[in-house]
Amino acid sequence: MNRRDDADLPWLAERERPGPVLRKGAGMTPLAWFDPRGRALGSFAFALNRITALGLVLYLYLHLGVLSLLLRGEDAWGDFLRLATTGAFLGLDVLLLFGLLFHGLNGIRVTLVGSGVVPERQRALFWAFTVVGVLALTAGAVRIVGGG
């Protein structure tokens, strides 16, 4: 139960002194997460993981919203299905699949690396999982677009 209080963080007090603190990102600090300048593979994976994650959260709620149409009976659902099987929509589905695959596979990689199982092999894992991901994405895209 020991929760750190600001009083226990002496470097925060140092921060109060005058003098600018350089940050990455363009203007807004959180953009530092997504600032690719001078950064390596790990930052790219992290940034994309975060973007896909937030995208997936958005989708989760969208999904719940869409499923509510089921409550309104067969007609509403049928209308939605017609919309959902148009070309543009299927493209979005492929995007969703990409997001899921990237986030999921990267998640497994981060789990393996981050729990100390293979702390040394993150790069190799990244590329191995990329291969798996590309294969799965291609297969999935063909099925989605090809009316599978």
Binding site: A32, W33, F46
Partner: peptide, 8 residues
């Protein structure tokens, strides 16, 4: 990048 947003 985390130190960039979190001084804690």
């Amino acid at each position: 990048p985390i130190a960039a947003t979190d001084d804690r």
